[in-house]
Every structure is written in C-alpha cells, then in structure tokens.
Design a protein around this nucleic acid. Structure first.
Length: 606
DNA sequence: AGCACGCCGACT
DNA sequence: GTCGGCGTGCTC
C-alpha cells in the first residue's frame, strides 16, 4: 500500500511512502514520515493499493483518525488551487496542530433533510448585527462555526455565545488540548457552537450548519503566508459545497461583497433601520495644515466635548509617500490608473506602482498651479504635541496597538483607556465601544487617499464609518479635509452605505479593478541581478501569451533586488495563471530565482 | 521550508 | 594543512 503525503513545504506535489503492514490509516489523516533528513508531519492525500518495496515507510501516525473527510479535503484542494499554494501548506495553515488524543468517527447526528440544507448567504450590516448573529445561531439546529479575525475577537465571541450553551474554541487562544477536545466534540456532535480563526475553517460541522464570518472586510482574514486566500472566500465556498448557511457581518462590507449582494444577488442583504448617527461635518483644511493640525471647528468641538466630560478621538495617519497640494488638496495621480503616484524624495520622481510609469518630481500642482506640493502629513507625535500645547489640562494619550505589543503595549493601552483625548490610527478605535465617544475628528484623512492603492478610498470610508459608529447619536464627527468633495465623506455624513459603494463600483468598473477584474502580484526574487531580469522577462513573456491577461511591466523594489509584476485578469484568474506559471512553480528549473504569486492582494506596498 | 553537500578564507 | 562560510539543490 502506498500513501501519498503532502507536507508543509513549497513543493506542489505529494510524496509517496510505503504503509507498513498492519496499519490502518485513512485519507485526510496526518502522519509522520521521513522527508530529507528529518521526520515531518504531513497529511495523507491519497492511498493506492500498489507495491511499494522501493519506497521509504511512514514513521508513525500523528493522530488516531483523519482530521479531514473527503469533502473537506476536496475543499482544501480547491483552496490550494485558487491560491496557487501547495496542498500541504494549505492544510498546515488551516488546521490546528495534530494531537494524539483519541479521535473517531463516532455517532454524528442525523443528517438534515434536503429542505433544511439549502445554500444561503446573508450579509448583516448596521447596528445590532452581532446580536442578530447570536440570535440566528440560537435558533439553528446544526453546528454553528464562527470565524473571527483575531484572538481578541475570538475571546469576545466565545464569551458572548457561551451564555447560551457549550462553545468550543478552536483558535490558538485555547490550549492545544482544548482545541483538540473541541474538534473531537464537534466530530461527535457533542458541541454545537465553535469559534476560531483561520485554523477553524475546516472544522467538522453537523447539518444544517451555519458558518459565520465576522467583519468580513478585515484584511486580517487574509494573513501573510499560504494559502493566500481570504477566509471569506473559503467560508462562501464551503457553505456552497456543504451546503450550509453563510452569514457575513461587517460595518462596511468589502466592495466585492457589496457587489455580490446588490448587483449579483448572490448574497442576501437586509438593511437595518437607520440607528442614531452623529452629526458629521467637514472642516476645510486647505492651506492651513502646514503649521497647525487642528482647524478652528475641531478645536472648538474638542473644548465643548471635554467640557461636557465626554471623550475625544483624534484620528491620524501614518506617513504616506505621495505628493499632495497643500493649497487645493489635489493628489498627484497616475493619469491612466488613477492611483496616487508614489513619491521618492531621493530620486525626486513619481512612479505608478501599477503601470510603472515614472515621471520626474514636480514643484507646481498640476491642478491649481499652486507651489506647495508636500509629501508630509501630520503624524501622531506632532499632533500630540499640538494638542498638549492647546489643552494643557486634558489627559492626552497616543495609542497604536500595531506598534507596541506585550507589556509595554498593555501599559500604553491602559493609559489610553483612561485618557480624555486619544490620538491614534485605525487600530486605536478598538478601545471604544459603540456610542462611547463624544467626538471623533480626523486630522487629515485624505492621507489615506494618497496611498498608491486602489483600495485607498474603501479603507478611508471604512475607518470613518467605524469612528461614526463609536460616536453614535448626540456626538460629532469632524473630517478635516483638503478633498472635501470625495464621495466617501458624503456617504458617512448621510449614513448612506449604498451611496459610497455606488460611486466606488463605478470607479472600479471604469478602471477594471476588482470585483470586475481580478489582480495578482508576482514577485521575483533573485540574488543575481542579471538572473532576476532574465527570470522576470521569462515570467512576463509566459503571462503575456495569455490573451485574457493584462500584464504590467515589472517594477523593481527600492533596493532593486526584487521585481514585481502586476497582472489583471478575468474572474477565473487562478485557472489562467496556474498553467501559464506552471514551469516556474516547479523546482527552480529556471535558474537561481524564486517566484511568488499572490492572487487578490489586499495590501501591496513594498 | 529544512538540511546536507560542496567548493574558497582564517586558524591550531 | 583543517574548520566553516552559506550558495545550490533535493526531499518519496
């Protein structure tokens, strides 16, 4: 008997081993086998009744029974295919670590009737969406699986759902034993609700199942590393295959999801009645942001809010390397791609990260002929300084959970939780519950629009909306802007999701961005420059041979060692890329260079 | 990805 | 004369 085993290595094919006499193993079971010099864990992806004398033997089983049944292994195959990742790496990333605990296909509950198990996907937005998810789970009969983007959310959801009955946690916030026990309980039909991150996506479910993805728009649902596929896509595909009910929640859905709901009607959308909303206003910041980060309306609102004993959030952005006009607010953009041109001060040039067009830096604004083009913005430190000078008695704190973790982060968090004025980027909003703020003001939200990324508008909108939710009725949101005409501002002010997506989809359609076309980024890394150039050329030529692909010229990164090719293609992009890149995906048969493929990139800065 | 094998500099 | 640098290539 031969077992084909897939390992967590960047090799697309499985390795074959002899199954020792007397062993009973199944497809989908994890085993230990010699690979190279070491013994490693892999997953059995095939069993063949063929002579195997010449092969090495499996060393041991890593767990007593298969973790994946046929359909879920087939789903893993699909995920690997879609993301151009290896099956072994896919399984390693989407499964909890193996545990030697007893396992077994013990009694599962009666299967649902066909009428009970249609595929159905629903998008829950607006106030109370999380409450509605809890109610839906309570009313369902089968297993519910709740996928969240991080451990903090996992803990919160486990607690929230735990009030109704047994909840198993499958994320790494639980001990390895608890995770294994939870998996087993699901398999045996002894647990009805599971919460987890990516490693729970393939958990066993009893019909009629409900799969929830919380905050489906979050980039954290597509962490670095294989398989480079958003958890939302996995949830939807799984729900369709089982079939199961998929519930997606978001304050501001991804543009792709909104489009599927409103244009394609593939996801049901139930708009909630509008809840309380803050007064949203714009403060024109053109021409004044040079020396002072707070416009008079913001300074006034801060004084009033603090006077009333309510809290203030000041949103800032990290510096972006684009060029904007301090007078008219225009951002220097690529004429064909419409994304902000990346500004390099040392090279004194502006480069489009998509089409590689490069033009020399300029000192006159192309829109208004003003002479104050500036790559700078207001970072958190400078804003804090200005605020302290202006409000010397207020308790002011800066908070950025992404910068500091661990003990120092805890101290910083505690200080921010007690402050009256919190200055921070997007991550700082997690300090505040719904309607807990008196004022949210954004110093220069346009900076987000300067990012050379077609999702810049979507990201800014999402941030402003999230802030407005945390202010709620009775408070105020003030946006200091140099681009006061951007549609995202009106949409937030009017509490009108549809208005934003309508404009955004129009923009995406015109320029051929997702969801209308799909993107992939291919990175080529070579030690030797000539070799890198050669490989890049070869990859570019292979891609160029596909009629359905638009291949942009390779762009070298700052240090010139890695090159990046952006490709636009049809919605079945993976199936076009896979054959075109097949020869480069095998062992570096193409010389000394490494090629990486990322389909549907979410953030693509170097 | 690991990990071993393989040809060129500073050491007992 | 060896120890070891990591560059190159394979792993059933």
């Amino acid at each position: 008997m031969i077992a084909d085993v897939a390992f967590d290595v960047p090799v697309t094919h499985p390795f074959s081993y002899r199954v020792p006499d007397g062993w009973t193993i199944g497809v989908g079971q994890r085993v230990i086998a010699p690979l190279g010099a070491a013994h490693r864990v892999g997953i059995v992806v095939g069993l063949r009744d063929e002579p195997a004398e010449r092969l090495k033997s499996l060393t041991a089983v890593a767990e007593a029974a298969p973790v994946l049944d046929g359909p879920r292994l087939a789903l893993a195959h699909w995920i690997a295919e879609q993301s151009l990742s290896s099956l072994g790496s896919t399984c390693a990333a989407l499964l909890p670590p193996p545990s030697s605990r007893e396992a077994g296909g013990s009694p599962r509950r009666a299967r649902a009737t066909d009428a009970e198990r249609p595929f159905h996907a629903e998008l829950l937005i607006g106030a109370g969406r999380e409450r509605r998810v809890v109610d839906r789970i309570a009313a369902s009969r089968g297993t519910a699986l709740v996928i969240v983007s991080d451990l903090e959310a996992a803990a919160r959801w486990a607690q929230r759902l735990g009030k109704r009955g047994r909840v198993v946690r499958l994320d790494s916030g639980a001990s390895e034993d608890d995770r294994a026990a939870g998996w087993l309980a699901l398999e045996r039909g002894e647990a009805e609700v599971a919460v987890g991150t990516r490693s729970a996506l393939l958990a066993p479910l009893a019909e009629p199942a409900t799969i929830v993805i919380v905050d489906e728009h979050e980039a954290a649902h597509k962490p670095p590393g294989p398989p480079r596929l958003h958890s939302r896509e996995i949830v939807l595909e799984r729900a369709q295959r089982e079939p199961a009910t998929a519930l997606l929640t978001a304050a501001t859905p991804s543009v792709e999801t909104w489009w599927r709901a409103t244009d394609r009607h593939a996801i049901a959308l139930v708009p909630p009645p509008p809840g309380p909303w803050p007064a949203v206003s714009l403060a024109d910041a053109r021409g004044i942001l040079r020396r002072e980060p707070l416009t008079p309306p913001v300074a006034r609102a801060m004084r009033e809010t603090l006077g009333a004993g309510r809290r203030v959030f000041l949103g800032v952005s990290r510096l972006a390397s684009a060029l904007a006009c301090d007078e008219c607010g225009a951002i220097v953009r690529c004429p064909t791609c419409a994304i902000a041109l990346a500004y390099s001060r040392t090279a004194a040039s502006l480069t489009c990260r998509l089409c590689a067009t490069s033009i020399p830096g300029m000192d006159t604004c192309p829109a208004c002929r003003g002479r104050r083009l500036s790559p700078f913005g207001w970072g958190a430190e400078r804003v804090e300084h200005a605020v302290r000078r202006r409000f010397p008695k207020a308790r002011v704190a800066r908070y950025d959970p992404d910068v500091r973790r661990g003990k120092q982060g805890e101290a910083q968090r505690a200080a921010a939780a007690a402050a009256e004025v919190v200055i921070g980027t997007r991550g700082a909003l997690r300090l505040f519950g719904p309607a807990s703020l008196g004022l949210a003001a954004f110093v220069s939200p346009d900076q987000l629009l300067r990012l050379p990324d077609f999702r810049a508008g979507e990201r800014m909108f999402s941030l402003l909306w999230a802030a407005a939710e945390r202010v709620g009725g009775g408070g105020a949101v003030i946006l200091q802007s140099q681009n006061p005409e951007h549609y995202a501002f009106d949409a937030v002010a009017g509490q009108d999701l549809d208005a934003f997506y309508r404009h955004e989809l129009k923009f995406r359609a015109e320029l051929g961005y997702p969801p209308f076309r799909r993107l992939a980024v291919i990175t080529i890394d070579a030690r030797d420059d000539a070799e890198g150039r050669r490989l890049t050329e070869a990859v570019g030529a292979a891609l160029g041979a596909s009629r359905s692909l638009t291949v942009y010229p390779a762009v070298p990164d700052r240090r010139g060692r890695r090159r990046r090719i952006v490709v636009k293609g049809p919605t079945d992009l993976p199936s076009v890329l896979a054959p075109a890149l097949a020869e480069f995906r095998t062992t570096r048969s193409r010389g000394r260079g490494i090629m990486e493929v990322e389909v549907d990139p979410v953030e693509w800065q170097f």
